[in-house]
């Protein structure tokens, strides 16, 4: 490295871009509201139209905050897994968390129709989806923990996680084969992901879960640096691999699990953002990489959300499709541009 990047400058630019993207995100939508108006409203000025105030404060700000939280949680869990498994393609979903959540939601949709109940009306329905997704994610997580208890090798854990994911996916396929068009639509809409469905109380809970999930990362931040050299070296430097593995499972479970529960599966953020952070910040030091990934995750998801709004139109694209459209070429480009194995 010829000259060390100026982290202070990079973080400053990052925070400013995050604020800018946040403001742009608020202004874009079916009703376009000028950024200047939104900016002034934060300093106590009235909106020139009353409806704008409702749109911004009741809909767009919660959604933008959801995007920020989801971006942070998914990127931080992605970085944890990539370092722990020493695998550049590891992401929060390789432990089967999103598939588990999907299975939970699919079961809810089926069970709901079997008992003649409609879970998808009113406030109760929204919580029911969150609840089902969380239960699904937690169940897969428990299975993974049991596996982690027995298996010593991290690579095996990764493969078992992928298999759990496939298994959950297969059960969802079977369920959708037997469900009717309406149920299928409900599930499909959920699986497209949405940042706009966090309602009163949910955003607070999501925020609380994110804080809770980040605590293990802060406790073990030094151990992640030691893990750069692999498990054996980390052990020789006094890192308790077992404890770190549990911290990683619990942290990613809470972070990715809550993001999936509140927003549905959102692809590629967890895989692509840590690589972007490494590329831009040019470091392997996790004390820099964790905050950098969190910041970039927030920016990227806010941008994806802005793209999904297609300014001026009433329709929005599913967020999962946008992140995939942005993320997949990004990962391909990264692979082609650099030797992927040397990213770490």
């Amino acid at each position: 490295m010829k000259n060390k990047p100026n982290y202070f400058l990079l973080f400053s630019v990052g925070i400013i871009s995050c604020i800018v993207v946040f403001m742009v995100n608020l202004s874009i939508g079916s009703v376009s509201i000028p950024v200047s108006e939104i900016g002034m409203s934060f300093f106590g000025n009235e909106f020139s139209r009353k409806s704008w105030e409702i749109i911004v404060f009741d809909y767009r700000i919660p959604k933008a905050f959801t995007a920020v939280l989801a971006g942070i949680t998914l990127s931080v869990s992605g970085l944890q897994m990539q370092t722990f498994f020493r695998n550049p393609l590891a992401g929060p979903f390789v432990l089967g968390i999103s598939s588990g959540a999907g299975l939970g939601v699919a079961l809810l949709v089926m069970a709901g129709s079997a008992f003649g109940l409609s879970f998808f009306s009113g406030g109760f329905g929204l919580w029911a989806v969150v609840f089902a997704a969380s239960i699904g994610a937690i169940l897969v997580l428990l299975l993974m923990s049991l596996t982690a208890w027995r298996v010593k090798d991290s690579m095996t854990l990764l493969i078992v996680g992928l298999m759990f994911g496939s298994l959950a996916g297969a059960i969802v396929s079977v369920l959708s084969y037997f469900s009717d068009a309406n149920q299928l639509k409900v599930y499909t809409v959920w699986s497209m992901g949405s940042l706009g469905s966090t309602h009163s109380g949910q955003l607070e809970l999501f925020f609380f879960a994110s804080i809770l999930g980040i605590i293990p990362v802060l406790i073990f931040i030094k151990s992640y640096n030691a893990m750069l050299l692999g498990e054996a070296y980390a052990k020789s430097m006094g890192v308790n691999i077992h404890r770190l593995r549990w911290a990683m499972i619990i942290s990613t479970g809470i972070l990715a699990g809550s993001a999936t529960a509140f927003c549905g599966p959102i692809a590629f953020i967890g895989i692509a953002v840590p690589h972007m952070a490494r590329l831009i910040f040019k470091t392997g030091d996790h004390r820099i990489l964790f905050p950098a990934s969190a910041l970039m995750g927030a920016i990227v998801l806010l941008m994806c959300d802005a793209i999904s709004q297609i300014p001026g139109s009433a329709q929005t694209l599913p967020i999962n499709a946008v992140t995939s459209l942005v993320g997949a070429p990004m990962v391909i480009w990264l692979i082609l541009k650099r030797n992927f194995s040397k990213e770490f």
Partner: peptide, 12 residues
């Protein structure tokens, strides 16, 4: 220790 484990880090 210095082990035989392969160390491949690009950005460090």
């Amino acid at each position: 220790v210095v082990l035989t484990d392969k160390v491949s880090l690009g950005n460090v």
